[in-house]
Nucleic acid binder design. Structure first.
Lengths: 112, 112
DNA sequence: CTATTATACATAGTACTACTATGTAAGTCA
DNA sequence: TGACTTACATAGTAGTACTATGTATAATAG
């Protein structure tokens, strides 16, 4: 289980990162995240969809409907330039915070 | 600047990490965080104190008043066993999320 | 000697947010 | 035909985080 604060901090970056690899749709993203995290991250659909809508509203991703061979309708999302920019910023921020924690948690010498 | 979500995710762990090194007080913690992050993390006092109060209420830290040589009253906080447990959990969670991001961001080969 | 800045803590109130619960719809499998 | 999986959607609320503001004292500048 992951705390909701950590969830909030990682959801958007993670979605953008996944979409940077190529188009995907909600249900698939949930499966991907679960697999990529080895089961640590289990997103609910009700939690993901509003985030996707917000990302689209913010211009970070764009969507189109498609019907699969089996006849299921899916909403495919693709990352935009704005999304790539947000991802770059988010990545930078994440890494800078991680550096601080890493330094403090680090293999010693328990820095002052 | 750090996004508020990332702030929310890192504040408690970072405070606990700092207090694990030894006792400290609000104002000092703010300076420490700024220095440790090279200026990236600038916490306001109005943001920090409620978090400290919550941490104490949750039993993660305990406090005592002390007056410095110059005559200033300070509230010193110390980490508790509960706090050490929360820190261990938070650290584990942070690292597991970081692993996922690292794998995806990693130096290639852009894993499927 | 007084104004400003730095040190030090506190919280009311609100603006925001995140997710649970719930709903729809259709395909698959037993 | 009933249970399960795939697939998307959102109302409503429970919770939260932080800004703005307040108190008080020491140090420093002018």
């Amino acid at each position: 289980m992951i705390s909701k604060e950590l969830m909030a901090a990682s959801t958007r970056p993670l979605i953008l990162t996944i979409l940077k690899r190529g188009e995907s749709y909600g249900y698939q993203i949930i499966q991907d995240v679960k697999k990529l995290s080895g089961g640590t991250l289990e997103w609910s659909d009700g939690m993901l969809y509003p985030v996707l809508h917000k990302l689209q509203k913010d211009g970070c991703i764009q969507s189109r409907w498609e019907v699969s061979e089996e006849g299921r309708r899916r909403k495919y999302y693709a990352i935009t330039d704005t999304g790539r920019e947000e991802l770059a910023t988010a990545k930078q921020q994440w890494l800078s915070v991680h550096e601080v924690l890493k330094k403090l948690w680090g293999p010693s010498p328990e820095w002052a």
